[in-house]
Simulated assay, not measured.
Amino acid sequence: MHATVTDHRTDVAVLKLKGELDSDTSAQLHDLLAQLLERPVPRIVVDLSALHFCDSVGLSAFVTAKQVITARGGWMSFAGANRFLVDLLDTVGLSRYFAIFAEVDDAIAAAQI
Score class of each variant (00 low, 15 high):
A27I: 05
Q35T: 15
I100T: 03
K18R: 13
P40L: 11
R9N: 05
D31Y: 11
A110F: 01
A65K: 02
T70N: 09
T91E: 02
A50W: 00
L21T: 05
Q28N: 13
C54H: 02
C54N: 01
L89V: 11
Q112H: 02
V46L: 06
S56H: 05
K66A: 06
L51W: 05
V41R: 14
K66M: 14
A110S: 08
A3H: 07
K16N: 05
A3Q: 05
A34V: 10
S49T: 07
R9Y: 02
S56R: 03
T64K: 13
R96N: 13
G19W: 02
L36K: 06
S60N: 15
T70Y: 08
M1R: 04
T10I: 09
D55S: 07
A34P: 10
G93S: 09
L36E: 07
V45R: 01
K16D: 04
G58D: 07
S23E: 14
D7R: 14
D90S: 15
V45F: 08
V45T: 05
D31R: 13
E38Q: 15
T6K: 12
A99Q: 07
V14D: 04
S77E: 02
H2N: 09
A61M: 09
A110L: 01
L37H: 10
D11R: 13
S77L: 01
Q112D: 03
Q35V: 11
V63S: 03
S60Q: 14
F101E: 06
E103P: 01
R96G: 09
F101H: 15
L37W: 10
S95E: 13
T10L: 15
V86S: 02
A50K: 09
V86P: 00
D90P: 03
A79T: 07
L15D: 00
L36I: 12
S56T: 04
D24K: 11
A27W: 04
N82W: 07
L48V: 02
D47L: 10
S26C: 10
L37C: 13
R72D: 12
E103D: 08
K16G: 03
S95I: 14
R83V: 15
D87T: 06
G58F: 04
I108F: 12
V5C: 13
G74E: 01
V92D: 08
K18F: 10
L33D: 08
L29M: 14
L51Y: 00
T6H: 11
Y97S: 00
T70M: 06
L94V: 03
R43M: 09
F53G: 02
D106F: 02
A79W: 01
F84L: 15
V45W: 01
H2L: 01
G73I: 12
E38F: 14
V45Y: 01
L32D: 06
S77Q: 07
H30C: 04
T64Y: 08
G74D: 02
A13V: 09
L17I: 10
A102D: 15
H30G: 09
M76G: 00
V92T: 09
D22P: 03
